[in-house]
Nucleic acid binder design. Structure first.
Lengths: 367, 367
DNA sequence: ATCAATACCGGGAACGATAACAGTATAACA
DNA sequence: TGTTATACTGTTATCGTTCCCGGTATTGAT
């Protein structure tokens, strides 16, 4: 590639010339199994047998049918299939806060895993987190999903009561907040993660450790807060309300949080920030306050946001095994579905607790 | 909230105690319209009329039916509906790279807009970007989607040929890369954005401006690169291959990119980085090279990543009107669908070109 | 009292596929 | 020759809903 070729591309890609196209293309209706059958000179049943790889079709017939299918680029209607089979090979997912790293990372992980197991993911995005209720589940059921993943990371007022969750016609497991009626096959031990973070700060010699927490309706907030509290107590450190401020997971709230914290508690020498975005805000605040990190202020985040390693200074944080959690949860849901299909009953399994991991980078290593 | 209450929460939320639950709940099959009809003492036809708010039902009958529906928490099967109506009120979306900010932001925007217009979004996530082909479209068609949004931000080898895209049974528009057979109702003028960014650096007095670009198979890369090139040419600045390095949108590649750039071109005094994550990496590299930003190195990013304002120094960048683009594109797709349903033909519309916007922050303002 | 118009309701077909069953033809064996 | 097994194929019913039609009851006008 040289600069001359760049110019050529520049011209042909110039978007300032308004593009015109006609759209009057014919839109051929998709073929049906009946038409394929007619073309191939067999019954629809035989076509169906070919589609589903059943054994009792003569080799010659099968080839003929396959030929016609390929010729017309035919694809059987998933809708008609779901209706007759009472099965869609689809997993519903109720999720919100995709603008945050955690939920969005889990979405792709869940989809990947579902696809790998021969299922399709049907996500239902909740834009108003308070409005996630049984309604969203009903919509998924109407779509004939075989099972549902509850991925809401926070507790809405509706779902707190959640009467109708328990009497539910398909298996339901949670990858997000605990919810009445849904099992959590896999849970990450965020409390232990918070302990790791706080412990690390103590080991580095920090003594007055504050907390910037998340919104109180997220269970993650509670768990991380409790982990911090436990270690502080165990180390017999001073803990009171002046050491805690509440954020909303955004960098903006992290910045505000640190200002507030140093005001409430001037001799503060470190902070455990409950996620990395807020930690970024706190880093900016520290910079503006003239407090060098980590020399004059220790800092640990949570989540291992992909950009955290490139903050200045690089952020020490807690990595959560999301991929493993998602993979195992999907696998468990599918197990429940297929087991229910056989026995009519789903068995009990225990909750698996996965440990997070501390990633030490410069921001919390005293020099 | 005081610290004592925190302890209480700590105990009841302690996840180290393994949770046990039995799952042998009854799973009542969802009700059908037939059962509702029987319960209400009317025909299924009448129930259907009530469900669809048709006028010719006696007020009394309607109330009775509605009561039964509410009683059993009945929801009509979307699958059966789609089958008979030949219409699903669902829009397919083919998309990849959800780990990046852009695609993920567009996903929520598209969904929000679709829902607002009474449709449901059915995303099909492509995990291997090279494998996005006509196959993914066939799968969506099998699901009876009424239209498809092509959201792939890069060009795969498959879709480059893309023979089968044009003869397609439902309307298809693109919110991502241009693709043969799909219109782009709305396009963001990224080239103009890149011109704004580069122009701004020149106005701040920088003279040797490098470029850290993206992967070559993203049209965004080409456009941003061309915008930079145009302005450099117009300002009669020196431009050759030593001023360009290629990244992959990640912060890691941005860091590497800057090292490489200053090596190739030691008198460099500014960089236009094609997205904000790479800009973050470049900021780290600058820090490590001992080049203060913006005094000793000007820097402008692209995309307005939510965290950019909290980088150090805060990042000057280009904001793209994604929300507007998504909203208008969805609206246009729905227009095409409904028009086609009436006339059988879709009309031509011109492509709308939206201008991005320069956000000046400290990283590119010389002091 | 007759007729037409209106309001309301139900019966049957259909959407596109599969399940269950019932055939037909050929081969194999007694 | 008859019986039975095997290989293959077609017919009918079905999933849950809506569309198209026809039917009855009520009203109002003549």
């Amino acid at each position: 590639m040289n600069v001359l070729s760049l110019t050529a591309i520049a011209i042909c890609h110039d978007m300032r010339t308004i593009e015109r196209k006609t759209m009057n293309r014919v839109s051929p209706k998709p073929m049906t199994i009946k038409e394929i059958a007619r073309e191939a000179g067999v019954s629809t049943q035989t076509v169906s047998r070919v589609l589903n790889d059943r054994p009792d079709v003569a080799k010659e017939t099968r080839l003929k049918v396959q030929h016609v299918i390929a010729l017309y680029n035919y694809e059987p209607s998933a809708v008609a299939r779901s209706l007759i089979r009472q099965r869609s090979f689809t997993l519903g997912l109720v999720v919100s806060h995709l603008n945050f790293y955690g939920p969005s990372a889990m979405l792709v992980e869940l989809d990947q895993q579902a696809v790998k197991q021969g299922y399709t993911l049907l996500p239902q995005f909740i834009h108003d987190a308070q409005a996630a209720d049984a309604q969203s589940l009903k919509r998924l059921i109407a779509q004939q999903v075989d099972g549902v993943l509850w991925g809401m990371p926070s507790i809405s007022d509706e779902s707190k009561s959640a009467v109708s969750f328990s009497s539910f016609s398909v298996p339901l497991v949670s990858v997000g907040d605990p919810v009445h009626g849904a099992r959590q096959p896999v849970v990450i031990d965020e409390q232990a993660g918070a302990r790791l973070a706080t412990q690390h700060l103590i080991e580095q010699g920090y003594r007055k450790i504050g907390l910037i927490s998340g919104p109180p309706d997220w269970s993650a907030t509670i768990k991380r807060q409790n982990g911090w509290l436990e270690v502080m107590r165990a180390a017999e450190m001073e803990v009171d309300m002046r050491h805690i401020v509440q954020g909303d997971w955004t960098a903006a709230s992290g910045e505000r949080g640190l200002y507030q914290l140093v005001e409430q508690c001037p001799d503060l020498d470190a902070v455990f920030v409950c996620n990395d975005q807020m930690a970024l805000g706190a880093l900016l605040a520290a910079q503006r306050l003239g407090r060098a990190v980590p020399e004059a202020l220790g800092l640990v985040g949570f989540d291992d946001f992909p950009e955290s390693a490139y903050f200045w200074p690089p952020l020490t944080t807690i990595r959560q095994p999301w991929a493993e959690k998602c993979a195992l949860t999907v696998r468990e849901l599918i197990r429940l579905i297929e087991e229910k299909l056989e026995n009519g009953v789903s068995t009990t399994t225990e909750t698996l607790l996965l440990p997070p991991e501390l990633l030490v980078r410069e921001s919390s290593r005293r020099v």
